[in-house]
Design a protein around this nucleic acid. Structure first.
Lengths: 223, 223
DNA sequence: CCTACCGATCGGTAGG
DNA sequence: CCTACCGATCGGTAGG
């Protein structure tokens, strides 16, 4: 976890129409301006971690505030509701996942679906199980706590993410490496990977490469 | 869902210090005493359904009481805490799952691992997706809400359940139908199946047999 | 971003 | 199983 224990001395708010003992306007951070979007990002990371470990409902906004050295009401200065914070965590997770996936596919030629699928799987494990990657697991397991509007917005990102799998699976189906229908294959494969969040233990020394090998061996035929 | 829609007419509250028009004491059930463990079971079913649809934290004990026509404090006559109710739901789910699995395996000869795995998969889909089977999905997705003691007790049942898969997967590995390591295969396969709870839609006309076919085709080699 | 606080909800209980 | 209630927690806010 990266949440600061000692907060960077947040400046007291200057209320509307009232005298403040401090200079008006944005306080001139002498040289370093280390807390611009910084506090917001700290809240996001702390929330992602706590939501993942304890669950959304079991985590109070006070917990999150304390994790970054704020007081109980302060998170609402950055996020208008606990829900909005949850949504922001998930959105950031999906953006990172899509970027990681696109990057992974860059090195694989389109006519090598076996290489592509391996990279997709490996990138997915990274997103789920990589150190500090709490954001997507939260999305997978706290989906229900979103309202309809938020869910719809996230669904678009998920469609984008999963869209990358379809042509690869179709190529594998055509070449005989995949026997099950493409759509069901995608659902079952992603399910198998997603479930790893429940049992994978980083400390037990298992490697994401080993996991990827096993998944490849399980899902793909040799021809 | 089996929760009564029309609750059994919970009598209007008799305010404090006022005479009740009804006889005191336990009402004599004329002949049938149809609600011995009956109310308890009704609570279990209603809780399983609500926990599955809304989640454990988002379901209040008042919701559950209302679903079976009780008043807010009454569930605690049957279960000493909300946690205990959750645990009871999961335990009942696991007992049913183990029984269903054992029954499915009865008809398959030990030397036919392809038949056995198909039956294991089909029984698992039944447990997860069959009509009215809310209990095991609750177990899969509300695990975190248990305390350590309850989690340990359930873990034993899960070990029992998964134990049935190992010899079958070993036979398939030996015969070349399975290429990935047995233990990782079990984890990945069960994950793929468990995740179906997230996307399977009974109304869309998909059949559990079709799903089973797809899973077989995805996981197993032809030889 | 802090202080001080509110209103609502919730699990649980005593006593019948 | 109902009545009446309590104590605690929690998301959120006004005002500074």
């Amino acid at each position: 976890m990266t949440a600061a224990v000692l907060p960077a001395e947040p400046e007291p708010p200057t209320p509307a129409g009232q005298l403040s003992k401090r200079p008006r306007g944005r306080p001139r951070k002498t040289e370093d301006e280390r807390d611009d979007g910084n506090r917001r990002q700290a809240l996001l990371s702390a929330a992602a971690h706590l939501f993942r470990v304890q669950g959304f409902d079991a985590t109070s906004t006070r917990d999150i505030a304390a994790a970054v050295g704020m007081h109980s009401g302060s998170p609402f200065y950055h996020f208008k509701s606990k829900d909005a914070l949850l949504y922001a965590v998930m959105e950031e997770g999906m953006h990172a996942a899509i970027a990681r996936q696109a990057k992974a596919l860059l090195g694989a030629a389109p006519d090598q679906p076996l290489v592509q699928i391996r990279r997709l799987i490996r990138a997915h494990f990274d997103t789920l199980l990589g150190p500090g990657n709490d954001f997507v697991p939260v999305m997978l397991y706290e989906h229900r706590s979103l309202n309809a509007r938020q869910r719809a917005a996230l669904a678009k990102l998920q469609v984008d993410y999963e869209a990358a799998w379809t042509p690869v699976l179709e190529a594998l189906h055509a070449s005989g490496h995949l026997r099950a229908p493409v759509k069901l294959s995608r659902l079952l494969i992603l399910g198998a990977l997603n479930w790893s969040v429940q049992w994978f233990d980083r400390k037990k020394g298992a490697s994401l490469d080993g996991l990827t090998d096993a998944a490849m061996a399980l899902f793909l035929k040799e021809c």
